[in-house]
């Protein structure tokens, strides 16, 4: 019953009614950025689409599933402790794992791990702090672990259906993030949103993440595996 209400709320006036729009604005920002940068700077890069196309596409999709959850958490500001810990862990883990995995697949273990950890820990702490120190700690640990695991998984699978596993991992991550949206809705059904935001936040956040990912993926340092 609650799930049906959640689906109904995706069209409602609460912050859940903004989630689909957030995905849209995030994707739009990423694709506009990629098209502009492709025609202005990256057209001369050899085999660009073949080497990085799928990973850039998955980066755009990854940030489009992470930003709605961040927006939802920010809107309620404070959450019960167990929910905050789950939020810190889920957002920290997914936002560490996916960027780590995608950069691990193109640049190797070092760059993937460092970038995954930075994104994972930052988002984990940022969202986990909605319940205080426990959520913050959970966010740090999940971001740390997700970043390392993502890069490691990609490097281990380099010669074993990397493209297919990238898509499978993204689908699983999307299901997890959607479940998190639902969990936050269940926990905050009786609450009112504390912060009113427009979509500028989503656009800036997505742009920053996409710019960093694209630059590192194409021009960043590489491990021996990638001829660095």
């Amino acid at each position: 019953m609650t799930f049906k209400q959640f689906i109904k709320e995706l069209n409602g006036n609460r912050v859940e009614g903004e989630l689909v729009k957030t995905i849209f604005y995030s994707l739009l920002t990423s694709f506009v950025f990629l098209v502009v940068i492709y025609y202005t700077k990256l057209m001369t890069v050899e085999n660009l689409v073949q080497k990085y196309g799928l990973f850039l596409l998955l980066s755009a999709l990854t940030y489009a599933i992470i930003t709605p959850a961040i927006r939802q958490v920010r809107a309620y500001k404070e959450l019960p402790c167990m929910s905050g810990m789950m939020i810190g862990m889920t957002i920290g883990m997914i936002s560490g794992f996916m960027p780590g995995f995608l950069l691990g697949a193109t640049n190797g273990m070092f760059v993937g791990t460092v970038f995954g950890m930075i994104v994972g820990i930052t988002f984990g702490v940022w969202n986990g702090k909605s319940c205080g120190i426990m959520g913050t700690m959970e966010g740090i640990m999940a971001g740390f672990m997700g970043g390392i695991m993502g890069a490691m998984t990609a490097v281990m699978l380099l010669n074993d259906h990397l493209m297919a596993i990238s898509i499978i991992i993204f689908i699983v991550s999307a299901v997890i993030m959607f479940s998190l949206n639902f969990m936050i809705y269940r926990e905050t059904k009786e609450s009112q949103k504390q912060i009113e935001e427009d979509h500028l936040f989503t656009i800036i956040l997505t742009f920053t993440l996409m710019a960093a990912t694209t630059w590192l993926m194409i021009f960043g340092p590489r491990s021996f595996l990638f001829g660095g």
């Binding site: 694709f31 689409v49 073949q50 196309g53 799928l54 596409l57 755009a60």
Partner: peptide, 9 residues
Amino acid sequence: ASAFVYSNS
């Protein structure tokens, strides 16, 4: 986007 990536890959 997927079609673009697929056709160039």
